Amino acid sequence: MPTFTWSAFFEFIGKGFTAIVAAVGAWWAFEKWRKRDEHFPRMYFEVTANFLGLQDGQMIVEVVAALENKGVVPLTIKNLDFKLRGIHSHDRVEIGDESIRRQVNFPRLIAEGKFIPATWAYSFIYPGVRTEYNFVAAIPADISFIRVQADFEYLTSGRSHHAAKIYKLPSTDSQSGDTQSA
Rank of each mutant, 00 (worst) to 15 (best):
F30D: 11
E31W: 07
E31R: 14
K32E: 13
K32W: 03
W33N: 09
K35T: 07
K35M: 03
H39S: 04
H39I: 00
H39D: 01
F40I: 00
P41L: 01
R42H: 11
M43A: 02
F45T: 05
N50Y: 08
N50H: 09
L52T: 09
L52R: 14
L52C: 08
Q55T: 13
G57F: 05
G57Q: 02
Q58M: 09
M59P: 02
V63W: 08
V64Y: 07
A65S: 15
A66S: 15
E68I: 03
E68W: 04
E68N: 06
N69G: 03
K70G: 06
K70H: 10
K70R: 15
K70L: 15
K70D: 08
G71E: 02
V72F: 11
P74T: 00
L75H: 00
L75C: 02
I77G: 01
I77H: 01
I77L: 14
D81Y: 08
D81G: 03
F82Y: 15
G86F: 10
S89H: 12
S89E: 15
S89P: 00
H90Q: 12
H90S: 13
E94I: 13
E94K: 15
I95K: 07
I95D: 04
G96D: 05
G96P: 04
E98D: 10
S99Q: 08
I100K: 10
Q103N: 08
Q103D: 05
V104I: 15
N105W: 10
P107G: 06
I110D: 09
I110R: 10
I110G: 06
A111N: 07
K114Q: 13
K114H: 13
K114E: 11
F115K: 07
P117I: 11
I125W: 07
P127V: 00
G128H: 11
V129I: 15
R130I: 04
R130W: 02
A138N: 12
P140M: 05
P140R: 10
D142M: 13
D142C: 12
I143K: 06
F145C: 08
F145R: 14
R147M: 06
R147L: 13
V148T: 10
Q149V: 08
A150S: 15
A150D: 04
D151H: 03
D151I: 03
F152M: 07
E153K: 00
L155A: 02
T156I: 01
T156F: 00
R159P: 00
S160K: 12
S160Y: 04
H162I: 08
A163T: 15
A163I: 03
A164V: 06
K165H: 09
K165A: 11
K165M: 08
I166H: 05
Y167S: 12
L169W: 02
P170G: 09
S171P: 06
